[in-house]
Amino acid sequence: MKMFSLRIFLVLSLLAGLGTVGSVGAAKAPSANPAANVMVEQWVGHNFTFLALPVDKQAAGYEIFIGEEAVHGFQGDRSVRIPYAEYVGKQITVTGIVPFPAGYNQKEYIVTMTVDDTGEKLAARTMRGQLEGLVLTSDLTNARQQFLGTTVYPKFRDLSGLYWTNTTMPRSVSLPIGSPVTVVDVYAGNQSQKPIWLIVSVNGEKAILPIAYSWTNTPVEAWTEAPPWQADLFAADPKISLGGSYALWAQIENGDIEEGMTKEQVHLSWGKPMRTEKNDSVWLYGTKRLTFHGVVLASIETLSETNETSIDTVSVK
């Protein structure tokens, strides 16, 4: 607690312009790499945009605080959160990062920032290395440059419809997995994990395909070498890039699998496994255990619901 109180003091000193803080990085120009993944420690100088919040979270506002109220906010006072309506869509520039110990050899960060159009100073505290409600502005810009007007191939059977009201659920738009859709708009969404909405045209209807463009503002343990948007769409026709017969793609669309499928094809058909074992060579879905040799599905087994060590080998088609 003493260490955290000291960190708060340092942040407030920074906000008040009382001096510099050694653990706060000096401002630097953002990376020119359009797909750069920016670690929290590298945020200084980068620009972020406030996302819309889900309807049920708008009244609470953003968990970000005006400088002089930051101490109360860090201590759990929800009344000093900045209001949603006044900040949604605004842009901020990060001015300082102050790490502090968070237990179990982990650390979090106090982030100081300035609102671009007013110069107002704000502060926030990361949770698992992430700040909710913000998207890296260059991610939004680069996603628009890469995807707007292009054809993409979603890895989903259903997408949320674009138009809805606060009192009705969005209507689902159905489409075959890997079918072509055209991106007609790109803008900030309302979820920090997938903060960018690709607005796509599906048979004359508009639907939302949420993506993350880079791993910035995502817990580091979730990062992979591939860009995160590849989990949600193909940039090229998968029937060509992945191969397979018409019958195989019909199985994927029906949610069926069989031995000989690749990991990518199984993932498309059944989605992400509940867990994996043996260095990703075994995937588990409920009572089904799938074993792969390399990337090829070698066997499908049914586990006993009462004893997972009792296994009946079956073929699922």
Rank of each mutant, 00 (worst) to 15 (best):
H267L: 15
D256E: 12
T95V: 07
G25N: 06
P83V: 14
R128V: 11
A60D: 07
G133H: 05
M1P: 05
L10P: 00
A124M: 12
D237A: 13
P228G: 13
S315W: 05
T49M: 08
A212S: 15
T306D: 07
S241E: 12
V183C: 07
T49W: 00
S315R: 06
M274F: 13
G271M: 08
A231C: 04
K57W: 04
R171S: 08
E221W: 08
Q75R: 14
E68M: 09
P210W: 03
K206L: 11
V152C: 10
K239D: 11
S174F: 06
N279F: 09
R78I: 14
S23Y: 05
N142I: 03
L136M: 03
N105V: 12
V24M: 11
L242S: 11
W223M: 13
L134R: 02
G61T: 11
S281I: 00
G286V: 10
Y84D: 04
N254S: 15
G89M: 08
F65Y: 15
I252C: 15
T118H: 07
T262K: 05
V266C: 08
L303D: 02
D56R: 01
P176V: 08
G243K: 08
V220D: 10
I196H: 05
A207H: 04
Y62L: 03
F74R: 02
V135T: 08
P54T: 12
A188G: 09
Q42H: 07
F4W: 05
A250P: 02
V88P: 01
E108T: 07
A226N: 05
D158E: 07
V71H: 00
A27Y: 03
A29K: 09
N37E: 08
G133C: 09
A16R: 10
F65C: 02
A250L: 14
A207P: 02
F234Y: 15
G45P: 04
E301Y: 02
V314C: 03
T276G: 01
T218L: 13
Y246F: 13
L148V: 08
I97E: 05
S310K: 13
V55L: 15
E120S: 11
V38A: 14
P180S: 09
G17S: 04
M3I: 15
G149A: 12
G67H: 00
P30L: 13
